[in-house]
């Protein structure tokens, strides 16, 4: 079952590979990121960051959507990681069954508003977020298991 869904621009890194994976008891990490899925070097890097004993898949949004029927049947504890809001929103639109998404870290870009801790959203990312919310998926922000899980309030975001 899918235990946690995270958007983290750093994909699989310390906090994700060690802390979150342990905390969730995850046995499989599914990375869904169009850029990474088409970049062999990045795939290798992500594979190296993978914790011991945990399975890893790296899919583009399209690939991931096609695999969902298989994923739903897995007995693994799954940790799903997106690299950005656009891929995530595109995915949610086609697969609106994810109850909640954790914005674990989205980097500041030109025109970004600071939302909370390590989450920055620019106007385009805000639109992606609205798309996600429209499909009934909740959005929260929690960097680490020990930090507070804050609900994202789109109306409070000013540029």
């Amino acid at each position: 079952m899918i235990k946690e869904v995270r958007i983290d621009h750093r994909l699989v890194h310390g906090q994700v590979a060690f802390t979150w994976t342990k905390f969730l008891g995850a046995t499989r990490i599914i990375v869904i990121d169009n850029k990474a899925a088409h970049d062999d070097l990045q795939k290798m890097a992500i594979n190296m960051a993978k914790p011991q004993g945990v399975k890893l898949n790296i899919f583009s949004v399209e690939e991931a959507l096609s695999k969902m029927p298989k994923v739903e049947k897995l007995s693994d504890v799954i940790f799903m990681v997106f690299g950005n809001t656009k891929d995530c929103a595109d995915f949610v639109e086609a697969y609106p069954k994810l109850p909640v998404i954790n914005y674990g870290g989205i980097t500041k870009k030109e025109g970004s508003a600071h939302v909370f801790e390590v989450v920055y959203l620019n106007p385009s990312e805000l639109e992606d977020t609205k798309r996600i919310l429209q499909h009934g998926t909740k959005v929260v922000m929690q960097q680490l298991p020990t930090t507070k899980r804050e609900v994202l309030d789109v109306d409070s975001i000013k540029f």
Binding site: G14, Q15, F18, T19, Q143, L144, P145, T146, T147
Partner: peptide, 10 residues
């Protein structure tokens, strides 16, 4: 300091 970034409060 590295641990506090990766693991948080511990």
């Amino acid at each position: 300091s590295a641990i506090s970034l990766i693991v948080g409060d511990v």
